[in-house]
Every structure is written in C-alpha cells, then in structure tokens.
Computed example of a mutant assay.
Amino acid sequence: MTDSPPPAADQRIGLDLVAPEMYAPVLRRLALVAVCLALVVGSVAGLFLEPVAGVVAALVVAVPAVAYVLAVRRRRLWLAGNTLYARTLWRTRQLRVPAVTGVELLVHPGRLSRVVLRLTAGPDRQLVPLAMYTDAGSGRELHILGLRRLADTLSRSELAAGIAVVELLVHQLRAEARDAPLPERPLYRAVAAARNKDYVAQIVLTDQEITGLY
C-alpha cells in the first residue's frame, strides 16, 4: 500500500471527512444568531400577546437550532480495532466491520458530489463518507490513515463486494500518497462517470463498475 508504518491495531482512527473542529466557529455563530432571533421573536410575541406566549415563541425558535448545533458538534465517526463507532447526540453505535453482511459504494451526483461507503450488518447500517467533489474541480477526501485502516479492516470480510471496495481504497490510498491529479483518483472517477451519464439520483456501483475505476 505505502511505505509508511501501519497504525496500531487498537489505535483510534477518525473517519470524519470534515473534522467538526473546522466548522465549530460557524456553529457558534449559528447558535448565537438563533438565540438573538429567539429573543426578538419572544419579545415581540410577549409584547403583543402575553409573556407566556413570548417564552414559547422564543423556545420554538431557539431550541431546534441549538439542538442541531449540539448534535453536529458531538457527531464523530471512528475505527478502533475492527469496530466502527458512530457517535450521535444521544448514543454511540458500534458495527464490527469483519462481520458485515453488505458492502456498497454509493455515488451522490450533484453540484457537490459525494462518494459514500455503506456497511450493513444485520439490521444495522452505517455510512462512511469517502470523498466529496465540487463542479469546480475541488474537493475533500478521507485522509490516508483512515483509508488504510478502513481497507485493512474491511479486508477481513469474506464478501466479494468487500474485496472490490478494498482494492478501490488501496488504489485511492496510493493516489493520495503520491498526490496524483483528480482524474487519476478512483473516487473522483466514480463521480466523473456519474456526471458523464447525467445521473441525478443516488447510484449504487456494481463490483464490475468498481473494478473499472482503478
């Protein structure tokens, strides 16, 4: 894969495509704007109706926005050992990657196109964002350590679809390691192929389509 040493088996490897710390300032501003707007709405409602109505109006405006900010800031996705962890506002879900019963590569075409790995284990399902690209030719991809650990862990699955995805991740890893241009990166090729066919809905790539990307 690469000449760099692999991460320790029990090391926690983050799989967030965009680290929450990067958009924390935006979330703080959103929460502040929501609270200010809630105070204005609550004051107006209390002035023309009654104080209780003002409080209710303020809460209706502020609570959803603040809850959204808290949920986004708490959200995390990481691998530790063979287990994928997904933390939301209320709980942390776990999914053992070698035990998955379904592996799918999804492409969401659009002005901001996304490539997502969908893992299924019985009734449990988890999405792992791998890359996103804009029409302008820029984008963001999962970092090298994340790709490597994901490929290593998924290689323990006996699914044929898993093997195809592992090979794709390995080729993507090599492309990122040598800083290859976007047209030489398998994940970008998946998006480019969807755009060339004018797809607008979510696409689930077949094993043959996946192998054709590298």
Rank of each mutant, 00 (worst) to 15 (best):
R73F: 07
L150E: 03
L112N: 13
D16V: 04
T211Y: 12
A177H: 15
L47G: 11
A86D: 07
N196H: 14
T206E: 04
R114D: 11
L37N: 14
L150A: 01
A160T: 13
R28F: 10
T120V: 15
A177F: 10
L142E: 02
A121F: 13
L127P: 05
L17S: 00
V165C: 01
E184V: 05
L142R: 02
I144P: 09
R93E: 13
S43T: 11
R75L: 09
L127N: 09
M22V: 11
V116K: 05
R140Y: 07
R195C: 04
I203R: 12
R189M: 00
A31S: 07
E209V: 01
E21Y: 05
L79D: 02
V165D: 00
T211S: 09
V72W: 14
S155G: 03
L32I: 14
V56H: 01
T83V: 12
R125E: 14
A180L: 07
R125Q: 11
A19M: 04
H143G: 15
R29K: 12
G212A: 12
P20T: 00
V44N: 06
A71W: 13
V61F: 05
L130K: 04
A62G: 07
L95P: 00
A34T: 08
E209P: 00
A67W: 14
L37V: 15
L117S: 01
L79G: 00
L17Y: 01
L95F: 03
A151E: 02
P109E: 03
L213E: 05
P98V: 05
T206Y: 00
A160L: 10
R91V: 10
I144K: 10
L17M: 00
L154I: 03
A71L: 10
Q172P: 08
Y68A: 15
V44A: 11
A71M: 13
G110L: 06
L154F: 07
R189C: 01
P6V: 09
L145T: 09
G122V: 09
P25G: 03
I13E: 03
I210N: 02
D3Q: 14
V61P: 03
P64N: 12
G110D: 05
T211M: 12
H171Y: 12
P6Q: 10
G54W: 05
V103N: 07
P183Q: 09
A131H: 00
R73A: 13
Y133G: 01
P51E: 02
L79A: 03
W78I: 04
F48D: 06
R91G: 08
A131W: 02
F48H: 13
L112A: 14
L39S: 12
L84S: 03
L127G: 01
G102H: 11
A24F: 11
E21R: 08
D3R: 13
M22I: 11
V56M: 02
V26P: 05
D135V: 10
D179Q: 15
V35Q: 10
V170W: 11
R28H: 14
V60M: 06
E176H: 15
P6G: 06
A80E: 14
A121S: 12
Q94I: 06
A194L: 01
V56A: 12
R114L: 08
E167S: 09
R93A: 12
D124S: 13
V41A: 14
R149I: 00
L105H: 03
L89R: 11
P129G: 00
V60T: 04
